[in-house]
Nucleic acid binder design. Structure first.
Lengths: 328, 328
DNA sequence: CTGAAAGCGCTTACAG
DNA sequence: CTGAAAGCGCTTACAG
């Protein structure tokens, strides 16, 4: 900028005015400055700008795994809202590791992002207290924050799961299995609660062997599904706790002779083209992301007062697998 | 930082030393400083740090659409490499719009990212010349840069498509359709070239009605597929130019009485569970991202000399749909 | 082991 | 319409 000013024979402030399109520069001066900018290949250094202005026009998004089909659309919709507000998006995956989440979040804070959208991996977010006090806007998504009062946007996990299981019961099932993620994960716990509620509503006692919670890698899920299907008290239907689980359960069911009903939480691509089509409890990832990001920018506008908990509805989509009657 | 120094009764430089874990501070002094840091909730401002140090420890990734299942794993692997080098990832979607690509790239340059991984939407990247001269490391991915000499990592689109079409020919097909993305997109053009080559290798003249290039939204693709399948010279097999096309073609074929063979470019989740399983030419998105990011950091290390073009192989995965014989 | 001064590249508040 | 001075929060190069 100094070089540009020297070459154009003007003061620093005049260059600043031209670069930022501020008024109060004669066309002739502006031309000279512009010419110098082009000749020198000058580009304003936003880091320096940020240092003076306070805001960085960037927000951070910490999620579990960018490669998961649920988070792609979510990221994209957060990005679109950020873009509408002139902000860039810094993205990071926690890989479901609380330490990595904290490391990422604090790195983002050190970069002085204006706001933070966090899909929590950990369950204690007190480490964020000083940052919140310092004015970093924050919205938690998909799972609530731990030990801290903050905005949170989530799906109706309890209601969705309860409805999905009730659907299976309505089609005549009583022995229904539940395979979900680790119980420390809020969504998994809530969906399990929904499962239990639906069973209780129907007066069906639940056998311990019908519930399996744990990591959602294919091996664990496969084992859990096989045990439920072939044990002494085999289930006639399975409720899958998320998209990763559903995919593996579909694989297992495809190998079974007996037809077993299935309802999965989360929609999956091509679910309608499988034989049978896969009935799911769908959440709208893009809508969740949009809602969270809009709330974040409203915090930054100062138009938001107290933290709120926003619960978005889910939608049961019947495609065949959830309407299969019990085999026996 | 000034406040911390005042509270601890030390100089600025000493605080800096403690914050950065530099040697040359007595344990007692360090304790006092640390205490002041905690009490004040101090966090180093990386923007200011960047201003002095030169490097921002962040890289930018501009892709087409974060919500596309091909780009999720790619982003994630770029992120992992960045993380290994202590850098954060700023992510942006161009939505296949050259202007938006340029806008994003230049915004990233103004933030002084150390490097840039770009999946180009446009075909002229001369606007990047001043930045490259200024030392921004850059790697193009999936499609080459336009009018500029830069590193590029791509799949063997030509060879992959040629192999996929040859596979259909080997199974007895002669009337084979090709449905792809807009011809100005490099990957689409290369895959079409591969299709033509395979047909020519087999001495099969290609009818104009067998090729359809354009946007890959479901409506256009559906129309194209239906025309090829029901026209005066109907095809017995379809080669789908990318994952978006494949999904729609599968839908159309499911509605047809006649069994039509299909090979798609890009693997898709659950492809093995459809009836029939979908034969694809797979590219490894994670590997592409990793290769590009590693090259980027080697540029930053200075261990890289001249720009190179790296072509990654594709893999034909047979699952049934590509092995269906011609209907007539 | 410790700290005062200068400077990174901008903007703010002010004066001319 | 234009510009000189001060300062954003840090690090560098140096001296003690």
């Amino acid at each position: 900028m100094k070089d540009v000013a020297a070459r154009a024979g003007v003061g620093l402030k005049t260059v600043s005015r031209v670069v930022n399109g501020e008024p109060g520069v004669t066309p002739e001066t502006e031309r000279r400055v512009q010419e110098a900018i082009d000749a020198l290949g000058f580009r304003r250094n936003d880091s320096a700008r940020v240092l003076r202005k306070g805001r960085t026009a960037s927000i951070g998004l910490v999620l579990e795994d960018l490669a998961d089909p649920f988070y792609g659309p979510l990221s994209r919709s957060v990005e679109e809202v950020a873009r509408a507000h002139g902000a860039l998006l810094i993205n990071g995956s926690s890989a479901e590791d609380p330490e990595r989440e904290q490391e990422l979040v604090l790195a983002l804070c050190a970069r002085r992002v204006d706001g933070l959208v966090v899909i929590p991996a950990g369950d204690d977010h007190r480490y964020l207290e000083p940052e919140l006090k310092a004015g970093v806007a924050t919205v938690f998504v998909d799972r609530p924050a731990g030990h801290i009062d903050a905005d949170v946007v989530l799906s109706d996990n309890y209601g969705g799961a309860r409805g999905g299981v009730a659907h299976l019961i309505a089609h005549g099932h009583r022995r229904i299995g539940f395979i979900g993620d680790m119980p420390r994960i809020h969504t998994a716990a809530e969906r399990l609660r929904g499962y239990r509620a639906a069973m209780e509503d129907a007066g069906i006692p639940v056998a311990g062997s019908w519930m399996s919670l744990g990591v959602t890698d294919p091996e664990r899920v496969r084992r859990a599904a096989e045990e439920m299907l072939t044990g002494p008290d085999p289930v006639t239907a399975v409720f899958a706790g998320n998209n990763r689980v559903t995919v593996t359960v579909i694989r297992v069911l495809a190998e079974q002779a007996r037809r077993v009903a299935l309802v999965g939480f989360d929609d999956i691509e091509l679910a309608d083209l499988l034989q049978p089509g896969v009935t799911v409890v769908a959440q709208d990832a893009a809508d969740i992301g949009r809602t969270a990001a809009e709330r974040l920018f409203r915090q930054l506008d100062g138009t938001l007062a107290t933290p709120e908990r926003i619960e978005l509805p889910t939608r049961l989509i019947t495609r065949g697998s959830g309407e299969i009657p019990p085999a026996d």
